[in-house]
Amino acid sequence: MALGLALAAALAGCDKQGEAPKAEEKAAMADDVGTMATPAEIKHGKGTATVTAIDSAKGQVTLDHGAIAELEWPPMTMGFAAKGELLKDIKVGDKIAFELDWDGKAGTITKLDKAP
């Protein structure tokens, strides 16, 4: 008999319609949405550099680059992701012109040409 009552109570609970959130709950949900992380804005930059390292297997290139005005970067040496086809014709020591996308955490080379 207890099993029958428990089953009846469980089934009755399944028939309940979801209640609409109260005003306070709606406000709290809106606050949560306002504080959620949003994808970083992608910034595009151009520069010139000397290739200091290449890891084609990992799709990485390290560049000693000049200032990049669009990103407000001073000259520095740093690594970037790059598709293999961009890396196939360059070697360490090459002077290059490049374009990159920066997401606020990492950069991806989108264009790379040997400098004349």
Rank of each mutant, 00 (worst) to 15 (best):
K114V: 00
A69H: 13
I109P: 02
C14N: 12
K26P: 05
A23S: 13
G66K: 11
T38N: 04
K111F: 11
A23Y: 12
D94I: 15
K105Y: 14
A49I: 04
D31P: 06
E41P: 00
V92F: 12
L5K: 07
H65P: 02
A6D: 05
A9L: 06
K95V: 11
K22H: 15
G104C: 04
D113P: 14
M78F: 04
V92Y: 13
A81N: 06
F98Y: 06
E41V: 00
K91S: 07
M29C: 14
T50R: 02
K83L: 13
Q60A: 15
A10W: 00
W73M: 02
D15I: 15
G18D: 15
M1E: 09
A8E: 12
T110C: 03
A20D: 05
K22D: 10
A6Q: 09
L71E: 04
T48Y: 04
A2M: 08
M76N: 03
A40D: 07
A28M: 07
F98D: 03
G4N: 08
D89N: 11
G107P: 01
E24T: 05
A30G: 02
T35E: 15
K83Y: 07
A40V: 02
A37I: 01
Q60V: 14
L63W: 04
C14M: 08
L63E: 00
A6H: 05
E85A: 09
A27G: 08
L112F: 06
A37K: 02
L7G: 14
M1N: 11
G66N: 08
L7A: 07
G4R: 12
D31Q: 12
I90L: 08
D103S: 03
G59M: 12
V33F: 13
D64T: 14
D64C: 10
V92E: 15
D94S: 10
W102E: 02
A82I: 02
D32E: 13
E70G: 10
K22I: 07
A27V: 13
P74Q: 13
D103G: 01
Q17N: 08
G79T: 09
A40Q: 12
I68W: 00
K83P: 15
G45Y: 00
W73L: 01
I42C: 05
G59T: 01
A106N: 15
A9I: 08
K46A: 10
T50S: 05
P39T: 07
G93H: 06
I42A: 08
D55R: 07
M29D: 10
G47S: 05
K22Y: 12
L5Y: 04
